[in-house]
Amino acid sequence: MTMGTIGGLGAAYPLISVIIPVYNDTKRLILCLERLKRQTLSKLTEVIIVDNGSTEDLEPARQRFPDAVWLTEAMPGSYAARNRGIAVAQGQILAFTDSDCLPEPQWLEHGIAPLMTDKPPSFVGGRIDLLTTSNARLSAAELFDLAVGFPQQRFVEQVHFAMTANMLTRAETMTRVGPFAISMKSGGDREWGTRAWKIIGPGLYVDDAGIGHPTRSTRPEVLKRIRRVAGGEYDRKPGWGAALAFCARHLPPPRRAFLDIAAISPETAPLMTKLRAMVFAYGTRFSLMRYRLALQFGGESTRS
């Protein structure tokens, strides 16, 4: 175990491996890596970036951050890329985030604290703050994403997983639970969290371990995520019975989404924008059902 101290914090910390999959996202990856350099525990952090088949040039990021570990993973899917990073990670703690995320300075310090106790949780899920893309009036798609995009606390405490945009766990836990399911291009964090919960116990939500994540501001960006969700459900439960049950669950209006949209302050969105976002939210349910049934008739889940 590699241990060390930071300045006047007066505590010993283990080596932390931060694993980031990337696919055609060089500019935002650079912003993420800049934030990681500002971590209070940056001197005890190894950063592992796994290129998952990017067609754009990542060389500007490589040159700017030569101390990072740069890997490639040919198999499409962020979970295959994360597993590639796990395989070479040296840290006692594994921290996962995405190339479009902006970690707060004490993200790692707050995130690993529960994992260093005598009875650590199986994983930690930190806060994910959605950041709007501009100061202009929000589109219906962006308002929808702002309301429902990353309910991390509910996922950790009720569904028993953390989104890998902000998840930390002990390396020994990953060894016991096993790696992410590479057959899944979406929903692999939920599948892994369910295994961890059954084998070791519940995870823990830590509000102070925060990262920022940009909202999806256009309809195509939201529908891209919808396709991934439908594909993840297909990968987890590919049968016709599961497909019909999935569609039945998504046929009623999304009451939780309506309430979350309504709760957004009038300063952020006026009433008519909220109403348009609610209509958009209901429409995404029909898109989910359509994509799910299309996969049932033949096809393969994709990451885009």
Rank of each mutant, 00 (worst) to 15 (best):
W240N: 04
G241A: 11
A242C: 09
A243D: 05
A243Q: 07
A243S: 10
A243C: 13
A245G: 08
F246T: 00
C247G: 03
C247Y: 06
C247K: 02
A248F: 07
A248M: 08
H250S: 01
L251G: 02
P252K: 04
P253Q: 08
P253T: 10
P253V: 12
P253C: 05
P254K: 00
R256C: 03
R256T: 10
F258V: 12
L259K: 15
L259R: 14
I261A: 11
I261Q: 07
A262C: 05
A262Y: 05
A263G: 11
I264P: 07
I264D: 10
I264F: 09
P266V: 03
P266D: 14
T268C: 10
T268P: 05
T268I: 15
A269H: 01
P270A: 12
M272R: 12
M272V: 10
M272H: 11
T273M: 04
T273C: 02
L275A: 15
L275G: 06
L275Y: 06
L275T: 04
R276W: 08
M278A: 14
F280T: 01
A281T: 06
Y282A: 14
G283N: 03
G283K: 09
F286P: 01
S287W: 12
L288R: 02
Y291L: 02
L293W: 12
L293R: 11
A294V: 02
L295H: 07
L295W: 05
Q296K: 12
Q296L: 15
F297D: 04
G298C: 06
G299Q: 07
G299F: 07
G299C: 08
S301A: 15
S301G: 15
T302V: 12
T302C: 09
